[in-house]
Design a protein around this nucleic acid. Structure first.
Lengths: 344, 344
DNA sequence: GTTGTTGGGTTTATCGTTAAACCACAACCC
DNA sequence: GGGTTGTGGTTTAACGATAAACCCAACAAC
């Protein structure tokens, strides 16, 4: 293992150029370089050119530790996620890792096993230096409005949540409309005995998705027997249990609308095991359009939620808020898409 | 959006306690607190107690930006990954995000589209401040040994690679043995016409996996017609194409050994589409034991690679190397496990 | 009795960047 | 012509932690 020759004090960080060297090269003070770089303060058009040239020539990259020390750059985002095995969580973690890297942010991912742990986890994140919080359901609604959360004094953004919140950014799709559209698609394709594997009803997004289904069914005069709605926990295993019960019903459903892809995959599983022919005997639809949707057989008709874009957007909002010290909560609605595949 | 009341200069980072406050509280100098905290320098047992008490009482957490500025703590890990859609990559990204967070490290994830981009990507990571590199195949072998890589002067670790390397840490499983064991399992279960969807042969781990298969077949006197081996690219789509060709062979294989779960899932897909009964007509096995393995039907018999543990181990090795300035490359062999499910 | 040595600290300087205060000079304003 | 207002910068003082140099008492060695 090779390591660089090190000066007594520091491990010589790969030929780092400091702002002073740039300043000397451009014949100005360090402060002016800083001003040009950040577009703050005052300088003439001509100095600007000189400084920029020096920056390029030397390949200057500001030292983020120093910037952060003086409080100029927020740098750490705490991500609070539910500790369930789901494709969606993995995808968010991966997207957040990449998006944070692009923005030079440090991601601090932390799992909270239950809603009760949310506050403790948030506190722990803050204590270890988080400047802002990125939340996933159900932690958005758990924390929103609580005095203890407010006391943390951290900016927060929630992705994939159901509705705007007064004290944090929200980046989401219209879950209800998406779910309604999906259900209508099934009805249009001739399905009549539609069953539902809902998500946990303490997740605001799950509630919306279930509402969307109900609306579509009602609009078409189809009744939804309550034994055709089962609440899962977004995990594959809970989907398995739910599907078992649904496919053991006296009157067999001809379609299952699941609230995420993992549970939809579970429904496929159970259907396969029972020897049903898919999608003839049973249509199954998912939600999220994770990688899973295209890996299972038959591939899932599902709702695409643009996870990468939503994650990136949430980070940008947080960065803006921290830098500009804005106080306006914002709600960003991203587009969803119905992706038709072979499962319905 | 609530933001904390801010002193003129800084956004008041959530009640941060500095080392000086701890020092005052304990009645010693800041330096002594630093020494106690890091177990460096000298101090009496009694001062130690006092300082530790003060640290706990005040909830002191060292400011990592300051530490880093003086060069005491390395903080940034550059993760170089191949930009293919695969469950394995997502899982590694997620695991790395969590493991980095636990260690207070900043993860800088960067995709390189091809082997040729590896060096540029590594340079870019270094320029943006990476202290060490975490590599995924094929970038380990692409970079290892090259003078340009050595010139970077960065410690590196590679996970899920095939063999020890002289200039970086390696954390891996015995790919060949695992693959051999898997093939032997199939033989023991009566399969005779075994086909292979190999991984890209510029990945050292893929090479090993293929070798393992061959060894097992040879050991049992089974010949492997060359049209029964197809090289995929670890993607689901490439698996699809490979499976199509294999299942169009005059003599139909009775088993397919795939080099990862995504390609195995693709084989299941094609088999379903052709109306084969699984696993009666065809056994399929995967590799990695990603979440996908349990989501598809039938669930995949596969090799478990402990991704979380391997990622964590690699980070620990890198941290040790940076802190202690060790020069010894190390090779860690983790245990794999054959996970039998219904697909064979 | 001068010269080490060691335990238990303290002081000082420094990392790279930026906020805030300051400065020199020019133009404008009754 | 004294005062205000701009423009285009520079200087200074942090931010928090730590490496290195220094200090001092107590004790040992010769």
């Amino acid at each position: 293992m090779r390591r660089p020759a090190s000066s007594p004090r520091r491990p010589r960080e790969g030929g780092k150029v400091t702002i002073k060297e740039v300043a000397a090269h451009a014949g100005v003070s360090a402060m002016t370089v800083s001003n040009v770089f950040n577009d703050t303060g005052k300088f003439s058009r001509e100095t600007r050119e000189r400084v920029l040239a020096a920056i390029n020539a030397l390949g200057y990259v500001p030292n983020s530790a120093a910037r952060r020390l003086v409080g100029a750059t927020p740098a750490r985002i705490g991500l609070l996620y539910a500790g369930v095995d789901s494709m969606f969580i993995d995808a968010v973690l991966a997207a957040a890792a990449v998006a944070s890297a692009e923005r030079g942010l440090q991601l601090m991912a932390r799992k909270a096993a239950s809603a009760g742990e949310a506050l403790d986890a948030a506190r722990a994140l803050q204590r270890s230096g988080a400047d802002a919080l990125l939340l996933l359901p159900p932690f958005d609604t758990v924390l929103s409005g609580s005095a203890a959360f407010r006391a943390l004094g951290l900016a927060a953004a929630s992705i994939a949540t159901a509705a705007p919140l007064p004290d944090m950014f929200t980046v989401r799709i219209d879950n209800r409309a998406a779910s309604r559209a999906m259900t209508e698609r099934l009805i249009a394709r001739g399905r009549r005995r539609i069953a539902i594997i809902a998500g946990p009803q303490d997740h605001s997004d799950s509630v919306e998705r279930l509402l969307g289904c109900r609306e579509a069914l009602e609009a078409h005069g189809l009744d939804l027997a309550e034994d055709r709605v089962i609440e899962g926990r977004f995990t594959f295993e809970s989907g398995l249990a739910a599907a078992e019960r649904l496919l053991a019903l006296a009157e067999l459903p001809d379609a299952i609308v699941a609230a995420n892809d993992d549970m939809a995959a579970a429904a496929l599983w159970v259907a396969h095991r029972r020897g049903l022919s898919l999608p003839r005997d049973l249509a199954v639809t998912g939600f999220d359009d994770t990688l899973l949707a295209t890996r299972v057989w038959p591939p899932l008709t599902t709702v695409r939620q643009p996870i990468d874009r939503m994650t990136a957007r949430a980070l940008d909002l947080l960065l803006d808020a921290l830098r500009r010290r804005t106080d306006e909560p914002a709600d960003v609605l991203e587009d969803y898409a119905l992706v038709g595949r072979a499962s319905d």
